[in-house]
Structures are given as C-alpha cells and as structure tokens.
Computed example of a mutant assay.
Amino acid sequence: MLRSAAACLLVVLLFASAESAVAASSSPRTSARPADTVARLSRRQLLRAYRQQQERGTAAKKPVATPAKPTPASRVTSPTYDTLPDTAVRSQLLLLGQTTPLLAGVRVFSNTEPVQATEIVVTLVSEAASVSQMLVYDQTGRFLATASQDADDSTNRTYSTTLPSGTLELPYRREISLSVRARLKPHTSGGASGDDIQVSAIRVNGNGSWSNADYSQASSETFNVFEATRARFARIENAGDATAILTGGTDQLLASFRFTGEETDTAAQLRVTDLTFTLDSYGGVTVSNPVLRVASANDTFACTAGASTITCSGITSGFGTVDAGALTLRVYGNVALGSGTSEQFLRLTLNNPGTPSSAGAITWTDGTSSFSWVGGDQPIMRGTAMSR
C-alpha cells in the first residue's frame, strides 16, 4: 500500500512538473524556478517519508527480547548464638522450667587429621528427672544441636544428638571448645526439687576428613554439681547502714539483712529456716540474748550467742517466709562494752555460702526440699560495721 501511494504521488508530481515546464516556456524565466524547486522538494519529502515508514515497519517487526526471570536467592539459615550472659562454670541452684547456666565445658583436639563431627553425647553422673534436653554450643557461642535422652540407655543418664554434615569440624591440631546447658522441666511437668545435676562426660564422635576413619573423643574432667529448685534467693543484701557508732546497752540493733527471692511456680514457698552469723568484735565487746525481728515488728525469735557466732535455728514461717518477693530480718541483742581499750568494733556477717556437699550459713526451703547452700562468693554479705 505504501509503495502504490508513493508511485501515484510521483506520477502526479511528475505531471505537475511537466505542466510547469510547458508554462515556463511561455513565461519569464524567473517564474519557472519556484515551481521546479517545489517539485524537487516534494519528491524528496515523499521519499524521506517512505523510507521512514519502511524503517518504522521493520523496527516494529523486530522481536522484543524477554528479560530472564531472576533466579530466587537460595535461603541461608543464619546461625543461632547463646544469649545467656554467664561464661564461667560454677555450682549454682537451678530454677525448674528454665534453661540453666553453663553446666560443663570441654576442649577438643585432633592430633591426626581434621574430623567431621557426626554425634555429640552428654552423660550425667546420675539420672536427673528434671532434665528435658541438653543444649550444645561451640567456643563462639554458636548453637550446634539439642541432645535428647537416649532411649537405648536404661540408666536414663545419656543425652545424644546427630549433627548434620558440615555442622562441626575438629581442625587438625587446633583446639576448639564445647559447652552445654540443660533445659529443665517445670515442677508441674516432672521437674524435681532437690535434683542433683552433674555432667559426667561429653563425647564427640566423627569421621576423619582424610582417611574416613571413625573417631571418638571423650572428656576426662570432673564437672561441677548443680541442684534444681522451685525457688531461690536472687539477692542477699545489707539492709542497714554501711557504718554506725557502736553503743552499749540492751536490745541494740546489731544488723539488718534483706533476702530477695525468685520462684518458677506460684505454689513454691521460699523460707529461711536457719541462719549462722559470724560475730566479728574486738576491744572487749560482747553480745548476749540475740533475737530476730521481721522489719519493724515487735515479735521476736530467740537465737543463741557464742564466742564468734550467733545462731538462729528452726526459724518459724512467721519470721522466715519471703512474702511478696522480699524479707528483711533484723538482729537485736544486748551489747556490753569492755573498759580500758581505745578502739572497739562489732559486725555481723553472713559468711559461708556453702556448696552442694557442705552446709553454709543459710538453710532454707522452697516448700518441697531443704537446701543448706546459696552459691556465690564468700562472704555472702557483711552487716553494719559499728565502732567507737
């Protein structure tokens, strides 16, 4: 169609050009040039339009490249890291229903070749009904796996996990560390107050990267003992002044301590049952007839004074129960001041925190079991230092 239209237009233009030429022969020469110029311009414009139309048609027929669909990015699972703050392993009281502090840590070393770890096995010294699972981490705090109780172990002391390929490699002649925590059952789901929890061994099984030989390496350390409880003391503080003037007389305030507790179930009942205060004194100062009072209450609980201790045994619930999360106990006594000395001093201290195997200065109960240690450093807390 475009070619036909162009041809017709060319014929018309040529015919018009011929007529112009005839007219030019009978007209002055100057009048012929504009008509000839118009004819030439019209032909050029027509040819240009024809070429442009052809080019548009060709361009329209060119295939349009379809952009390739982007390939979805492969999903990369980010590693999970330990979020609990403790990094040292020491004996502690463990709250049921929670994840424990670090129970054990080991160093693993391959002297022969790199080893691809395939299994981690955690064994306890004795069965602990409170332990639901073991959580295993590497030296950077990266979570490796959850170890569950081994159904084939009749002693119920073994927790194992199979590691996916590439999870953990023991480098050739380079030491790495592993640590474990436990996830404890709540008291209402089988968690047992008074449960002793102690790791016996951590074993790593794997295959040699060069030889494909089987490897197995177990720890030989003795690990700390922990004890499960429904409640515990979060803080034990001096509730009195740091220092005071020492005054002689009857029924003198000797010390004040605040016990703050934490519980994992509403039925737990945290209560102090026995206290042993270390009595530090010099300059002839003596104490007699010591008693306990709860905050500013007038009721008293009688204690016993020795040469270097004050002992309060069998404290009843009215004096020892930690209500609303906190309990403040005050110690009173008769103070006699010696004569002929220039300096005199008196202070009561809750000194020995105890251990799972040895009694300390505080005995207490969570409503189910009795405990004679609180953990932490020695001394537990010093009372007011009184001097004159």
Rank of each mutant, 00 (worst) to 15 (best):
T273F: 00
S296E: 06
G318Q: 11
T260G: 07
Q269H: 11
P290Y: 00
I202V: 14
L292T: 00
N298G: 04
S308M: 15
T311N: 10
G261C: 00
E227A: 03
E263H: 00
V199I: 11
L279P: 02
V322Y: 01
T328Q: 05
V225D: 11
T264R: 08
S200R: 15
D251Y: 03
S220M: 14
T311R: 05
T229M: 09
G208A: 10
A242L: 13
D265E: 02
G261P: 01
E263Q: 03
R330C: 07
D274G: 08
G284A: 11
G240C: 10
D274L: 03
I245W: 08
R293P: 08
R293S: 13
Q217V: 12
N289D: 04
G248C: 02
E221S: 15
L275G: 07
S281I: 03
V225T: 14
A267F: 02
S313E: 04
T266W: 06
T286E: 05
I315A: 08
V285Q: 06
T264E: 15
W210F: 06
E237N: 13
S308G: 10
A244R: 02
Y215L: 11
T321L: 10
A295P: 12
G325K: 00
I310H: 09
N238F: 08
T300D: 04
A244P: 02
E221G: 14
Q217W: 03
L329P: 05
T304M: 11
N289Q: 10
A307F: 07
E263T: 12
D265Q: 03
N224S: 15
G306V: 14
G248V: 01
C303R: 00
F223N: 10
W210E: 09
V294H: 01
T321I: 06
L275E: 04
V199A: 05
T260A: 10
F223W: 06
T250N: 15
G320F: 09
L253V: 04
R258N: 12
V294P: 03
R258C: 01
A268V: 02
F223L: 12
S200P: 13
D280S: 04
G208H: 07
A324K: 14
T276M: 02
A234R: 13
L329R: 02
G318S: 13
V204Y: 09
V272W: 05
V272E: 08
